[in-house]
C-alpha cells in the first residue's frame, strides 16, 4: 500500500476496522474550560453532564502533520469532517498539507459519523488496491455524493445548543413529546418530520433506506451509528442486515467529542447504495 488514508475521529470507525484498512485516525479536540484534550483521552461519562464550558474543534494542523509523517510513499488523502459542521478539520488539514513536500490531497467529506466512515472505507479499499492519490479521491467522490444519514434522538437540545439545527426542532420535541428525526446531508442538519414513538422512528429509518434503493442491481453499505445507545444500534444493524443483506456493515460509536455535539441517545443509519455494473 502506498497511499495513506487519514481521517478524523468524527468518522467513528471502530479501531480494529481502521487498523485492518490501514486508516490513520486523527482525534478531534475537546476544550474543557482552559484545558485542551484529545478526543479519546476523556471518558464520556465525565462529560455528558459537564457545564456549558465544553467545546470541540477539529484536530490541529500539528495533529495532521504527525499522521502525514507516518504516511504512504506516494502521499496521503485526508478525508475530513464536513466543513459546514466545523471548518477546523478541513482548514487544519490544508494548513498542514501546505507545509510538507509529500503530496497530500485534502477532501471535505461533507458529512460526519458513519457517513464519513463509509466514505473513508471506500477510499481505503482503493488505496489498498494500489490506487494513486487521484484514484483514491475518485473512489471517495461517488460515496460523498450518495451517502445519506438519518438519525433519531431523544432531544435536539444538544444539537441546537451547538448551533447545528434551528432551535425550532428542539422545542417541537419537548412540546408534544415527539421523537425528532434528522437528516444530515451535504454538511447540514435538517429536521425531518418527527415520529410519534421510538418504534415509529426506527421504522422510518429502515423505510428511508429502502426508498433510497436505486433501480437495477445494487448493494448496500451501511453503518448503524449511536451515541451511548449501543444496544439500539446493534438491534438496528441486525434489522438492516436481515432486510437488505449489506456488503459493508458496522456499528459506529460516537466519540466523546461527537457526543458533546449531538448529545447522548442518538441512533441512526448512514448508508449508500452502490450500483453494480450489469
Amino acid at each position: 500500500m502506498t497511499v495513506r488514508v487519514i481521517t478524523d475521529s468524527a468518522a467513528t470507525l471502530p479501531p480494529d476496522l481502521a487498523e485492518r484498512l490501514g486508516v490513520l485516525v486523527v482525534p478531534l479536540r475537546i476544550a474543557l474550560g482552559n484545558r485542551s484534550l484529545s478526543d479519546g483521552d476523556l471518558d464520556v461519562a465525565a462529560l455528558v453532564d459537564h457545564g456549558p464550558d465544553v467545546s470541540t474543534s477539529g484536530p490541529t494542523p500539528g495533529d495532521y502533520l504527525a499522521a502525514i509523517g507516518q504516511g504512504g510513499e506516494e502521499g496521503c488523502v485526508v478525508l475530513t469532517l464536513s466543513r459546514e459542521m466545523g471548518a477546523g478539520s478541513f482548514l487544519a488539514a490544508q494548513a498542514a498539507a501546505r507545509t510538507v513536500s509529500t503530496p497530500v490531497r485534502v477532501i471535505d467529506t461533507e458529512c460526519a459519523a458513519g457517513a464519513q466512515g463509509l466514505v473513508v472505507i471506500a477510499a481505503a479499499h482503493a488505496a489498498r488496491n494500489g490506487a494513486t492519490i487521484g484514484g483514491v479521491a475518485e473512489a471517495a467522490r461517488p460515496v460523498i455524493e450518495r451517502v445519506r444519514l438519518v438519525a433519531t434522538l431523544p432531544s435536539l437540545d444538544h444539537l441546537a445548543r451547538s448551533g447545528h439545527v434551528p432551535d425550532a426542532a428542539a422545542w417541537a420535541a419537548r412540546f408534544v413529546g415527539l421523537c425528532p428525526v434528522i437528516e444530515f446531508r451535504r454538511g447540514r442538519v435538517r429536521p425531518l418530520r418527527p415520529a410519534h414513538s421510538a418504534h415509529g422512528a426506527r421504522r422510518r429509518l429502515l423505510d428511508r433506506v429502502a426508498e433510497a434503493k436505486p433501480h437495477g442491481t445494487s448493494c448496500l453499505h451501511v453503518c448503524a451509528l449511536h451515541a451511548l445507545a449501543s444496544d439500539g444500534a446493534d438491534d438496528l444493524l441486525a434489522a438492516v442486515e436481515a432486510e437488505f443483506r449489506p456488503a459493508t456493515s458496522f456499528v459506529g460509536s460516537f466519540s466523546t467529542a461527537m457526543i458533546i455535539h449531538a448529545g447522548p441517545g442518538v441512533l441512526g443509519l448512514a448508508w449508500w447504495w452502490e450500483p453494480l455494473a450489469t
Binding site: G58, T60, A87, G88, A92
Partner: peptide, 15 residues
C-alpha cells in the same frame, strides 16, 4: 501557531 491551531479561527490566525 501551526501545530497548535485550533478550529477554523485558529487556523486562520496561524496563517
Amino acid at each position: 501557531a501551526l501545530l497548535g491551531a485550533r478550529g477554523a479561527s485558529g487556523v486562520i490566525l496561524s496563517q
